[in-house]
Structures are given as structure tokens and as C-alpha cells.
């Protein structure tokens, strides 16, 4: 599996690895959604440090999780996106919904 998880109180930190296209996006979506339900998650941090590529399917994954977390009154963040991935996130306007930070520590500091 292309995923690492960490649970910090009611925040789920997910580290995705590889190319976030329709293959990976579908797997990641199901895994995250199951964990949100099982662990009564409120907030979600998506760590994209190890993601080398993203397309519409990956963006759809982010928007879908954002809607879900939003409906739970939680907050969602993206961290660690490399420049090529970050460019696509900005191009799509997703950064207006989901704040993007350099590191997980940066979120804790805000």
C-alpha cells in the first residue's frame, strides 16, 4: 500500500507515496474514508512529500476528503508538496479550500 498513517488525537495524518493518479486515488480514498469513520477523525493532514505526480483524479480525492472533513466540522491541510505537485494544486485553486504548508510542524505552530 502506498500509504502511511499516524493518529494524533482526533487528527489523521496520511502520507501518500507515488503517483497520485486514478489507480492510487481510488485506493487512498477508501483507506482514508474507512479510517475517518473507524477512529472518529475530525481533522486530516495530507502529507504529499512522497508524491511525484498528481492529476484530476488526485485533485478529486483531495476535494472529496475536504468535503467530508468539512461536514464533520474539521479542518484539512496539505503539507510537503513538491514544486511540480504544488503548481497543479495552485492551478486548480484547491489551495483556496485546503491550506498548504511546508511541514507538519508549520501547522502545529499556527
Amino acid at each position: 500500500m502506498n500509504l502511511d498513517y499516524k493518529l494524533v488525537r482526533n487528527t489523521l495524518v496520511v502520507k501518500v507515496k507515488g503517483e497520485l493518479d486514478m489507480v492510487i486515488a481510488e485506493r487512498v480514498r477508501d483507506e482514508i474514508d474507512n479510517r475517518i469513520t473507524e477512529n472518529q477523525i475530525k481533522n486530516l493532514i495530507l502529507n504529499l512529500e512522497k508524491v511525484t505526480f498528481i492529476d484530476s483524479s488526485g485533485l478529486g480525492l483531495i476535494i472529496g476528503r475536504y468535503k467530508k472533513i468539512n461536514s464533520l466540522n474539521g479542518k484539512m491541510y496539505i503539507v510537503g508538496a513538491r514544486p511540480t505537485v504544488e503548481k497543479i494544486l495552485f492551478f486548480s485553486g484547491i489551495n483556496k479550500l485546503v491550506p498548504i504548508y511546508r511541514t507538519e510542524q508549520d501547522i502545529i505552530n499556527i
Partner: peptide
């Protein structure tokens, strides 16, 4: 027509 993607495919291609 598919809610799980973002509807940006052709926008990326054009851009």
C-alpha cells in the same frame, strides 16, 4: 459527469 474527479481534464489539456 463523475463526482470523484475534478472536471479539470480538458482545462489542463488546453492550458
Amino acid at each position: 459527469t463523475d463526482g470523484s474527479r475534478m472536471g479539470m481534464g480538458f482545462t489542463f489539456m488546453k492550458s
